[in-house]
């Protein structure tokens, strides 16, 4: 059972992610979503991260996409790769350099995840035109992820670490690699 304070924290995290995304929507693929999800994933447990991402994806699709199952499936799969990677291959690291490069690679992975879903939805099974057309946008997302993690992860994490006791966070070991 998740404590009420933690549930509120998760809902606040979803709100922050959703609102900043709407505010930055006029610049394609430039967003703070990745750095925020990486930040929250490194603070929440895997289960809490899953709830946060599920609610965010549903809310985002309800607001913009009319709950299109192909978009929901692609977004959920792509964003869930962050907590999966952080809890496995990234070894729960908080090293900015590692996270920034992960954010960069994630920008491309995010685009690739959408390809099969889009192919099924549009019934256009031509991989290369889609990949080539999407590559610049993946690059923009990757670069934005890299820069935002590089500059914003540490100060945002420090705020969390400072405020956590009053937000019901359980004891976590202090990070050493920032």
């Amino acid at each position: 059972m998740i404590p009420l304070k933690r549930l509120i924290l998760i809902s606040m995290a979803v709100t922050i992610i959703f609102v900043q995304e709407q505010l930055l929507m006029f610049i394609p693929n430039v967003q703070l979503t990745t750095v925020l999800i990486i930040l929250f994933v490194s603070v929440f447990t895997f289960k809490e991260s899953f709830i946060m991402i599920l609610v965010y994806v549903l809310l985002d699709n309800l607001f913009l996409g009319g709950l299109n199952p192909f978009t929901i499936g692609a977004m959920l799969t792509a964003w869930m790769l962050i907590p999966i990677a952080w809890h496995t291959v990234l070894g729960k690291t908080r090293n900015i350099q590692v996270l920034a490069f992960f954010g960069f690679i994630f920008g491309f992975i995010y685009g690739f995840v959408f390809i099969p879903f889009t192919m099924i939805q549009t019934e256009v099974f031509e991989l290369w035109p889609y990949m080539l057309a999407d590559l610049p946008f993946q690059g923009i997302m990757a670069t934005t992820n890299f820069l935002t993690v590089l500059w914003l992860y540490e100060p945002l994490y420090n705020v969390f670490e400072k405020e956590m006791p009053s937000l019901g966070k359980k004891q976590t070991p202090a990070h050493k690699n920032l």
Partner: peptide, 25 residues
């Protein structure tokens, strides 16, 4: 991470993003 390293990374990344916007012209 040292500030100079961060700035160096940022310069490379900003150059990349400018190049990508050029590709989208």
């Amino acid at each position: 991470m040292k500030l100079i390293t961060r700035i160096a990374y940022t310069v490379v990344a900003v150059s990349l993003i400018i190049g990508l916007f050029f590709l989208l012209s």
